[in-house]
Write a protein that binds this DNA or RNA. Structure first.
Length: 573
DNA sequence: GCCGTTTTCGGCCCGACTGTTTTCAGTCG
């Protein structure tokens, strides 16, 4: 049973949490956090790297000590240092620091002065008004803790990007209508197009901040104003989403946009490059002593620290800064590169529109082809089709293609991968299709080994082309099933198969790190919408965004190719 | 705990807001 990177990342994060409460050197705490990010953002399995005798201390932010600790975790599944720390610091204190307004220092003081070691104890102490008596605390702090505790239970966590888009659009429109406002732009993880957004960061440029602040706090959807200052305010919306507003003068636009786009790890790394050049970067600009040397645009800012412009989707401190220094940044795929969609459904199974309607919609989006990949019989709930129905659909699409201009319908299937790895439709029918998309819709609970084998067996079928939504996860709803993704990718590469990046906003499966791994291995990815209606075809941009986060270039994406090229790629030898 | 085109030791990003304070610590992003 090999330890996954995510588990190692979690252990390091936990080390950081506990060390912070203990009052350890903050740079030591940061070292653990950075190492956690390295582990979770790494495309390859640390356990595999160790098995191959690779030197982990060559990885960024991993030195000798942490390399040894990774080895310990991989060998034993535990970390003695963490267990020692857990003896000193009650686990519940970490929960306390998750409450807004409570950090490590206050959690520690609550523990030492009042013996509080979890949320329940905190609630009891607050009810008895014992918190306000502590030095550094007061009645207001106590009240905020009570409110935070009440809210904590209904905390929804991170919000899906597509959901946040609707909220953001309306809020931005409201702020744009305020007199004197120049620009309103959403920064943060939203601009980096992360699959989920924790809170929304809105940046405004204007001369006078007060009217914007007022409009921001009085917006219809605001449930509570958490803080309000001259240049910065925070509110909580009824939807549970926190929104931060920052107002800066126009001359600081680029620096502020850069700063509030993050990520934090990226910003910190670039700032330290600036420090070495005797420059200071803050949200108002880049400064040499008192003199502003850049800041009106992001381009300017990157220029003075000696970097090429880095696209927001790449700003995660996962090698983009080194690439920018060496002028080796990828030319990221964009919507204009996309020439078709390789996974869509029609009303023949669980789609809402006819094949012709879907084809017309694809043509309207400028595509050259659209694959109709309806479900196979196993998926009864979606009216999956048997061999006879597929034969009839193949003939129907041939006739449609003869009458349509400017769009080609590809004959496909989303065939179920059965538990033993066989496919739900006979080869005699698969061979007549333009492409075969295979997917897992059941048997999510198999062991990692069995699930991986199952997919490998499926890909052994000579007609298999693309593995749809390869991990089966649904964001905020269902975790990925256990599978050795690196092995699946290598297996696909050896067999001439491909993996899908499913663009549905609640799937986005492959994730960004998987895409990066696929690219590094030399495996092309299909960005597909899995559309069940004509409107769903517009999900493509979410897939493209995710692919960009995974460093994908047009050459890495299957559906930037013409059908003629794809035909060659799909004909496995 | 990491890291090195100043360095193997001594650095490690920067500012706004709040509440409890009489000048600042804690928290957050």
């Amino acid at each position: 049973m090999s330890v996954r990177n995510a588990e190692i990342a979690e252990i390091f994060d936990r080390m950081a949490d506990l060390l912070e409460i203990q009052g350890a050197n903050r740079f030591r705490v940061r070292a653990y956090r950075n190492a956690s990010l390295t582990a979770s953002g790494l495309g390859r399995s640390l356990a595999d790297m160790l098995a191959a005798s690779e030197d982990l201390s060559e990885l960024p932010d991993i030195g000798k000590d942490l390399a040894d600790k990774i080895r310990e975790i991989v060998d034993t599944g535990r970390l003695a240092a963490l267990e020692e720390l857990e003896k000193d610091v009650p686990a519940g204190l970490v929960e306390l620091t998750r409450l807004p307004g409570l950090g490590p220092k206050r959690a520690k003081r609550l523990h030492e002065s009042l013996g509080i070691h979890d949320l329940e104890g905190l609630a009891r102490a607050a009810r008895k008004h014992r918190i306000r008596e502590l030095p550094g605390f007061g009645a207001k702090t106590e009240q905020r803790i009570v409110e935070a505790l009440a809210r904590h239970n209904q905390d929804e966590g991170r919000h899906k990007l597509a959901d946040v888009e609707e909220i953001a659009g309306a809020y931005v429109a409201c702020l744009e209508a305020v007199a004197g406002v120049n620009r309103v732009v959403v920064a943060g993880s939203y601009r980096r197009r992360q699959e989920t957004v924790g809170d929304l960061d809105i940046l405004v440029t204007c001369k006078k901040g007060a009217p914007v602040m007022k409009a921001f706090a009085e917006y219809d959807e605001v449930d509570e104003v958490s803080s309000q200052g001259k240049t910065r305010s925070t509110v909580l919306l009824r939807s549970g989403l926190q929104v931060d507003l920052r107002v800066v003068p126009e001359v600081s636009y680029g620096a502020a946009l850069y700063y509030f786009t993050g990520s934090k790890a990226h910003n910190v790394a670039v700032r330290s490059i600036a420090v070495k050049k005797k420059l200071k970067i803050n949200e108002y600009g880049v400064f040499k002593g008192e003199r502003r040397v850049a800041g009106k645009t992001e381009d300017e800012l990157f220029g003075v620290v000696g970097l090429r412009y880095i696209e927001p989707e790449l700003r995660e401190n996962r090698g983009e800064i080194e690439a920018a220094q060496k002028n080796r940044l990828p030319r990221l795929v964009s919507m204009s590169d996309i020439r078709g969609d390789l996974h869509a459904h029609s009303s023949a199974t669980d789609g809402h529109h006819s094949i012709r309607e879907m084809a017309e919609a694809a043509k309207n989006r400028g595509y050259a082809y659209l694959a109709i990949t309806d479900h196979s019989k196993r998926v009864t709930i979606a009216h999956g089709m048997d061999e006879a129905r597929f034969r009839r659909q193949i003939d129907a699409i041939d006739r449609l293609n003869a009458s349509l201009r400017g769009i080609r319908i590809l004959k496909g299937v989303e065939v179920d991968i059965l538990n033993d790895g066989s496919l739900d439709i006979r080869n005699s029918v698969l061979k007549r299709l333009d492409l075969v998309v295979g997917a897992i819709h059941s048997g999510f609970g198999l062991s990692r080994e069995k699930q991986t084998e199952r997919i490998m067996r499926a890909m052994d079928n000579p007609y298999f082309n693309i593995l749809a939504h390869p991990t089966g996860r649904l964001i905020n709803q269902r975790p990925a099933y256990e599978v050795d993704m690196e092995r699946v990718m290598r297996g696909a590469l050896e067999r001439g198969c491909f993996l899908e990046l499913n663009a549905q906003p609640d799937r986005l499966d492959l994730n960004d790190v998987h895409c990066r791994t696929a690219k590094d291995l030399g495996s092309m990815v299909a960005i597909s919408t899995d559309a069940h209606s004509t409107n769903d075809l517009d999900y493509m941009r979410f897939g493209v965004d995710q692919g960009r986060r995974g460093w994908l270039e047009p050459g890495d994406v299957l559906n930037t190719r013409s059908w003629r090229e794809l035909k060659t790629l799909f004909a496995r030898r």
